[in-house]
């Protein structure tokens, strides 16, 4: 058995007559960044949603470290070591920035019901550790000063970084980022992506990255999957993709 971190085998996702994802096979290796690009509506997000269990694929199999995870629910993915961010931000707006990160550590904080009701010594200990860890994560993304602000009240770019920190604090082995730089300006997205790269190299994790910014994508990714209308039109290292006539045609039109 080959040791791909995640492998998707012939994934098909149909919504009625709409073939959102049509027969995609792709894998990610350890320490690898896999980029997914494609025009809007080409099924990138749907593919990630299938991989993280939000949708159950119509056909096909998802393997994580060789284990079949097809049809597993989103809430059970974290335990396996899969974390993700969302295209349209799913942070907890009425919680503080700190609490957002603490929720991210939901599975690592272990308290008995007794601890939770009476806030015993063990509770205080775990809580202190969790807060320290959260603070580290916030420092990493540069949000330490905002720890007590409401997540809904900080700027959009900061919210994006918060969601990233929330995913990181779960210690994932595979991170899926769905358009992490959407809505950010050039400098901000550059910074964020450099941060992602740095984290990836330090923590030795794999990343699946959906991104529109071609320049960043080509710089960061080890391999790139190009999708159009739910199908794979190219898969390879950035240099190959950039010179692939099919991709150029899809992106630059028939001319």
């Amino acid at each position: 058995m080959s040791e791909h971190v995640m492998e998707a085998q012939n994934i098909k996702m149909y919504f009625g007559g709409v073939h959102a994802v049509d027969d995609i096979s792709v894998y990610v290796d350890k320490n690898e960044i896999l980029g997914i690009i494609g025009p809007n509506g080409s099924g990138k997000t749907t593919l990630v949603n299938v991989l993280t269990g939000i949708y159950t694929p119509t056909e096909g199999k998802c393997l994580f470290n060789g284990q079949d995870i097809t049809g597993k629910k989103l809430q059970n993915m974290t335990g396996l070591g899969i974390a993700r961010t969302f295209q349209n931000l799913r942070i907890f707006k009425a919680l503080t920035v700190m609490d957002n990160i603490l929720v991210g550590q939901h599975l690592t904080i272990s308290n008995s019901p007794w601890d939770i009701l009476f806030h015993g010594k063990h509770y205080r200990e775990t809580e202190r550790k969790a807060r320290e860890r959260a603070m580290e994560a916030l420092e990493l993304v540069g949000l330490e000063k905002n720890a007590d602000d409401f997540a809904g009240a900080i700027p959009y770019g900061a919210q994006k970084r918060l969601e990233l920190a929330r995913a990181l604090v779960m210690d994932p082995r595979l991170l899926m980022l769905d358009e992490p730089t959407a809505g950010l300006n050039g400098v901000e997205s550059e910074e964020l992506m450099m941060l992602v790269k740095e984290i990836q190299q330090r923590n030795q994790i794999s990343i699946i990255l959906i991104e529109h910014n071609m320049k960043l994508m080509m710089k960061l990714s080890d391999r790139v999957l190009v999708m159009d209308a739910g199908r794979e039109i190219a898969l390879g290292v950035p240099a190959e993709i950039q010179s692939n006539p099919v991709v150029i045609k899809a992106y630059l039109g028939e001319g």
Binding site: Q75, I91, V103
Partner: peptide, 19 residues
């Protein structure tokens, strides 16, 4: 925190492992 996270964003909460 899990309860409040579920209120704010159910799918977001599930993505961090909250049932």
């Amino acid at each position: 925190r899990a309860i409040q996270a579920t209120r704010d964003d159910s799918i977001g909460a599930q993505s961090v492992g909250v049932k």
